[in-house]
């Protein structure tokens, strides 16, 4: 990274690069490295024991499992939303388009208390659901709902530009070749959107796994039932079990890195497959 740039007429490379690397190292890299160094205080067996203890495993299972389900729901709902926003005209379309970003913009604590109030036993949606015998708040279902909420924008915003730019002609070509609308959508349009869909799914999944603020209010936080991994980190910290907290964090972090890696592969694959110009 330090290799001098090829000759350039513009000044400032040293200064700006220096600033960038300094700030990046101080704020991000060194603290993250500290996390990994801290885990070395545990022996390998201690690390494995911590990570595979019943409570930790449950928390990880809850976080990863529900995040996966929520991302799946986001995938399906996101596709419907994108399709409606891009392909149809209806009153309020622009407003709904803007609304998609609210889960990005709304502070997570606010989302947390609002969703909890909404789905609590006496809430607007919680009450009718309770009559059907469905309890949302303070159960894993609540965690799932909160994860769906914060994941909404990802699939929509990654797929939207691709669907807008999709050539009209490929659909017309499919129709001329005798494909019915369903065949055109499933065999031509969706495969063209696949890289974007997978990217959106992975982003929503990654976000939901690490999500804290919007989940803890509605979760109930019962150990082994509705306790998410980030909360367990906080609990371990408050018990001054730093190494334990760190071990859980490392597992989550490594998973995040894997997701980034997979995302990069998806992007590269999409590029080699679809470099077609015109």
């Amino acid at each position: 990274m330090r290799g001098a740039p090829k000759r350039s007429a513009l000044p400032g490379f040293g200064l700006t690069m220096g600033l960038t690397l300094t700030w990046l190292s101080l704020l991000i890299l060194i603290p993250l490295a500290g996390l990994f160094i801290k885990t070395t205080e545990l022996s390998f067996t201690q690390f494995v024991d911590t990570v595979t203890s019943n409570r930790t495993l449950h928390a990880l299972k809850i976080s990863f499992g529900l995040a996966f389900l929520a991302a799946l729901v986001n995938l399906v709902a996101g596709l419907l939303i994108v399709w409606a926003l891009v392909r149809y005209r209806f009153p309020g379309r622009r407003i709904f388009d803007a609304i998609v970003d609210i889960p990005f913009a709304l502070p997570t604590a606010v989302a947390g208390v609002a969703l909890t109030a909404l789905f609590a036993q006496k809430g607007w949606l919680g009450a009718p659901l309770a009559e059907l015998g469905i309890k949302v708040a303070f159960t894993p279902l609540g965690i799932f709902i909160a994860m769906v909420f914060i994941g909404i924008p990802f699939v929509v915003r990654t797929v939207q530009p691709v669907l807008i730019d999709l050539e009209v002609e490929i659909e017309e070509a499919a129709a001329c070749l005798g494909a019915n609308r369903w065949q055109t959508v499933t065999r031509v349009i969706l495969p063209s959107l696949t890289p974007a869909i997978l990217t959106g799914f992975a982003l929503a999944f990654a976000r939901a796994v690490g999500e804290y603020g919007s989940v803890i209010f509605i979760a109930g936080n019962l150990p082994n039932v509705s306790e998410i991994a980030p909360l367990l980190i906080v609990i371990r910290l408050s018990e001054y079990r730093y190494a334990d907290a760190t071990a859980i964090a490392v597992v989550m972090l490594v998973t995040s890195f894997l997701i980034i890696f997979v995302l990069n592969r998806i992007q590269r694959w999409a590029q080699t497959r679809a470099l077609a110009v015109g």
């Binding site: 990274m1 290799g3 001098a4 740039p5 090829k6 350039s8 513009l10 400032g12 490379f13 690069m17 960038t20 990046l24 991000i28 890299l29 993250l32 996390l35 997570t108 990654a206 796994v209 690490g210 999500e211 804290y212 603020g213 980030p230 909360l231 980190i233 906080v234 964090a249 989550m252 972090l253 995040s256 890195f257 997701i259 980034i260 990069n264």
Partner: peptide
């Protein structure tokens, strides 16, 4: 504005905080 080796890595590192749980 400049070309240098490791640019892609640097961009990935800058994006890193997005994929780290807030708690972490």
């Amino acid at each position: 504005k400049f070309e240098f080796r490791g640019k892609t890595l640097l961009i990935t590192l800058i994006d890193l905080p997005f994929s780290v749980s807030p708690v972490i």
